[in-house]
Design a binder for these strands. Structure first.
Lengths: 150, 150
DNA sequence: GCAACGGAGTTCCCTCAAGGAACTCGGACT
DNA sequence: AGTCCGAGTTCCTTGAGGGAACTCCGTTGC
């Protein structure tokens, strides 16, 4: 059965989780995106263990998602998003969108997103890169791709 | 692993992680989406510990992402995506898209997505729900929303 | 009627990672 | 020459994940 084949294959979801699937990693990226780029800022804002924060930052730098960059002649560093990392933040926006729709409750969303192009507070929507129509989970069929494992 | 409780943070990303942030959860959803809906199927495909699989399935059912439904007169159950769960799979498609772009390497993507509307193999793209233009991480400003903590 | 079967968990033990507090290091400022 | 501050590192405790064995319960075969 094809279905079984698909699911056994090497999987881009699993690979992505290898990069940001560990606890805290997405929140670290969120904070860096929001402008908290230094070790002490991240530790204070997240309340994460310093040990784990060190591990996460190293992991993200190793995977090319963050860049560690000195900002002083003293040994002081800040972490900035690479192109690869910025595209991961797209994923965070989709995550935030789902949380806003399903988990925000009475109070409403904690953060709003204003789109530069139109100046409006808005949300992301998933569309097909080919035809531009909405493209959601039930709008697609899965097919084995070239990188499918045997 | 996830020892710190993310659910009370005033952040839709953290709250979403509280639902699917634990290890394995996204892969469980992926498999169920792909049609592996039963305990034994999931366990065999993922190689996950039965104990952890039980925990994850219960957690996802509690959060309304999955529904546990009998499919036999014997005590046999399958897990199906709710509306809430299907919208989470949108997130998985974005995750897969990032993995395809940045991690697939020479071999190319392991899975392709054919869009029902146009019939083409394609990928998701993030657009503004308001103006329809692309909406990526660097195309937005963050503003405090009504649900922001004091 | 009784035994074997198979799916769906449950129990138990072991290991390893997260939490947390204290400690280190090194350049700069006074 | 002493202190400060950012950026980690070390060490101990605790609890979550891995894995194998065990249980439960309707059904089917004899």
């Amino acid at each position: 059965m094809q279905r079984t084949d698909f699911s056994r294959m090497a999987c881009s979801i699993a690979r992505t989780l290898d990069v940001i699937g560990e606890p805290w990693s997405p929140l670290v990226l969120r904070d860096i995106w929001a402008g908290l780029t230094r070790f002490e800022q991240l530790q204070a804002d997240l309340g994460i263990s310093r040990k784990v924060l060190t591990e996460r930052l190293n992991h993200l730098v190793e995977h090319g998602v963050l860049e560690r960059r000195p900002y002083d002649r003293r040994p002081r560093y800040e972490y900035v998003l690479t192109r690869k990392g910025t595209e991961l933040v797209d994923l965070l926006m989709v995550m935030a969108g789902w949380g806003d729709r399903w988990l925000a409750g009475e109070a409403g969303p904690p953060v709003l997103y204003r789109h530069h192009a139109c100046g409006e507070v808005s949300a992301v929507e998933l569309r097909c890169a080919h035809c531009g129509e909405p493209m959601r989970a039930d709008d697609v069929d899965l097919l084995p791709g070239p990188g499918a494992a045997a």
